[in-house]
Design a protein around this nucleic acid. Sequence first.
DNA 1: TCAGACATGTAAGTCGTTACATGATTCA
DNA 2: TGAATCATGTAACGACTTACATGTCTGA
Lengths: 218, 218
Amino acid sequence: MPRSKKTWFAVLGLLAWRPMSGYDIKKLVEIGLSHFWSESYGALYPTLAQLVSAGLVSRRSDRGRGKRPRHVFSITPRGRGELERWLRGPTEEPRVRNEVVLKLFLSPSRPWAESVRLLEEHRTRQLASHEDFAASEVVLRRALKEGVLPVELQSVLGDGPKANQPSGARSRQLLVLLLSLRQGVLAAQARLAWCDEALRAVRQEARATNPRLRGVAR
Amino acid sequence: MPRSKKTWFAVLGLLAWRPMSGYDIKKLVEIGLSHFWSESYGALYPTLAQLVSAGLVSRRSDRGRGKRPRHVFSITPRGRGELERWLRGPTEEPRVRNEVVLKLFLSPSRPWAESVRLLEEHRTRQLASHEDFAASEVVLRRALKEGVLPVELQSVLGDGPKANQPSGARSRQLLVLLLSLRQGVLAAQARLAWCDEALRAVRQEARATNPRLRGVAR
DNA sequence: TCAGACATGTAAGTCGTTACATGATTCA
DNA sequence: TGAATCATGTAACGACTTACATGTCTGA
């Protein structure tokens, strides 16, 4: 039984926000969705072609004067129908494969210092991504409150002033963007908290095992 | 460039805990590591065969009288060397693909009630897994404090009373098991907190948008 | 003028899952 | 005796990623 075709529906769903080229989709995912989604060109372009064949998406060649030629894809009514069915359908839990935890788990025969380094490096990465998220959150909350759309968000939400957004649609987009960001913030916080807890435990254990280190700070 | 061969090293690392059959490995991962790792038979058995070919693991046929015949795999010294190199090497961040967040993100054209249902279902699953983790944690902490190994953990850590565990090795296994569990607990808590936050926001928005529902509890 | 962004694709290969296939042993 | 669990594997497929290949336009 074919498994879920996530790229398929991710692309379809993004095209429901607004018509875009493959390149636009890639950028949108990288810039705005990277904390919960990823796509590669090698999956994107074939998927786009398949969606067109299936009649869920239409392709139009946009070759404006002095413009780079590009293909703009739009969702069709049938595409909206399929998207809706998928949105209403069952949602798969991602199967987890956390290499950091695995390494820690497999480390019992290694020196404690190695686990400490593993955790410290992981912590540094988490801290950086947490800071990124937090900064984006500040921008987004201001946008939501003041109703202005800063440049940073235009590439995510589309900049069209003439875009025929029904009233409230824009603020609804901002809300789901904020909620998805909050997910990233909370997850990063939890990972950070885990690093701290694990580091404390491992360092304590290291001191207890190797009395020469007793009293050494850090 | 071949990507990291996680199954390869996961299997190698588990065999460093103790010799096991493929079936044992599968059960161990399912029962004790499911909150941060997964393996399928279709990956496991071929990997085991490859590890043997590579000389990192040795296979012995165990056909005791009245016993089911089985293959017991043990890590070789070369295998330990490779494992060690991998443990010390760089650790990849998993690329995230969270279908729940994606669906929420793609929902702006759908009724709020649909997002509420999505989040509620997700919350229910997270609550259940959080409870499982918390229960396991209680068992583990007691084991760590009292130095006794309850039956539930014997399938994870191995039950050998004659196992030539160097002093402290068992408690170190318990510690990394606890830490890996804590990772699951904290992650589940964060997901739960996010669900609550998102549900609050979405419900509030739903009420604001549809005044007929104003004042309706839940 | 040339680096860097824009833009689109393909080919090969990796990684892993599901479904299939098979059979032994235990225990109610 | 027959269901559940132990036990081992393969085949086909699905879903991606990486690396390659190619070209255009903009602006410092």
